[in-house]
Design a binder for these strands. Structure first.
Lengths: 197, 197
DNA sequence: GTCTATACTCAGATAGAC
DNA sequence: GTCTATCTGAGTATAGAC
């Protein structure tokens, strides 16, 4: 899961702009990143940026789109490799933790940027497909009877809220140990809360 | 828990500015709220705003300070009224849910604004006192043996991450039912994950 | 498609009268 | 302490040559 912009038909300069945008938006935030900042960091001129993207907002939107696409692909891959609900849940959590450790900047941007502040048209992140995928695994568990009956959103909050919270603590520098250190404790506790008696 | 700026020695116009700032920062975000916006909404002039606050960032910082102070006071109140760890945890969660329903805007600003983007000097929110207080209840439970031994941060993530996640879903409009509907399911599941055998 | 130069807007902040 | 008027600069976006 190396490069987020490898896919398809992106021109080289567009790729460099997206790469710089990811770095700078994460580091300083969308509003604190000016076009001149992007020009300096990417080595691509103002004119070319506006040739490649309608405006700054469109640039952010497209960036978001690419990141989500990569994430969706990885999730699909995990689901394909694991069949039972328990295996899927554990594998997805492991992937979430590893992803956050490998790409803290991307994780930060995806999870905690206030997207609607600079992309008014885009839907809230938790309505995005990757979050649906996570929820669907819980739903599947409830339907097959592996997980106890309760409101799906509540069950999902237990299942992933704890994980996301730990990731946030990690990203904020509160955690002193690597994320994966806590994989077993975390998943076993969550599973205890969710599994059918 | 009505007014966040009632306390102490705030001048009337300062109070109006803070009130407007809370509304607008939440509605449109810090960067999308201009000083002219604040002037129009509060009815206080530019000059008076800059008389009351050093600059826009200081305004945001002071706003944050007031909100956190109110929250700390309410938490202290809850702890004073409940003695056992279980009672305290359940009461704190109930308060979190009720608070989010009563003051969605404040909750949104406290939890999900990217504070460091406009208040570079302020520490991450999860290092703030209210979050310490939540964690300390878990710590107390582990020390008294009511809760099972595990990393405190992991236990806290289970205990409150699920709650915060549900709140986020609520604030994003994904939940169709009132938050308190899920109080029992949520707390019982979390407790199941955390309680000693 | 890429660049440089530039136009235009409007935000943040200040000066200074009352 | 409150206001109006104003400055200054940064930042988005465009024009137009190559």
């Amino acid at each position: 899961m190396a490069n987020f912009f490898d896919a398809s038909d992106i021109s080289p300069s567009k790729k460099r702009i997206l790469q710089s945008a990811l770095t700078l938006f994460v580091e300083k935030g969308f509003f604190n990143t000016s076009i001149p900042d992007l020009v300096e960091h990417s080595g691509v001129s103002t004119g070319s940026i506006y040739h490649a993207f309608k405006d700054k907002e469109a640039l952010a939107t497209e960036l978001m789109h690419h990141l989500l696409a990569t994430i969706e692909a990885e999730q699909a891959d995990i689901l394909a490799r694991h069949q039972t609900v328990k295996a899927r849940y554990f594998a997805l959590v492991e992937w979430m933790l590893r992803f956050a450790e490998a790409y803290p900047d991307v994780e930060q941007f995806i999870l905690y940027a206030r997207h609607k502040e600079f992309m008014p048209s885009v839907k809230p992140i938790c309505s995005a497909k990757p979050f649906m995928t996570l929820r669907d695994v819980i739903l599947e568990g409830q339907e097959t009877g592996v997980l106890r009956q309760m409101d799906v959103m509540v069950a999902s909050s237990i299942a992933y809220g704890s994980v996301l919270r730990l990731i946030q603590l990690y990203l904020d520098g509160v955690l002193s140990t690597p994320l994966m250190t806590h994989f077993d404790e975390l998943t076993e506790a969550a599973w205890r809360a969710l599994a059918a008696e």
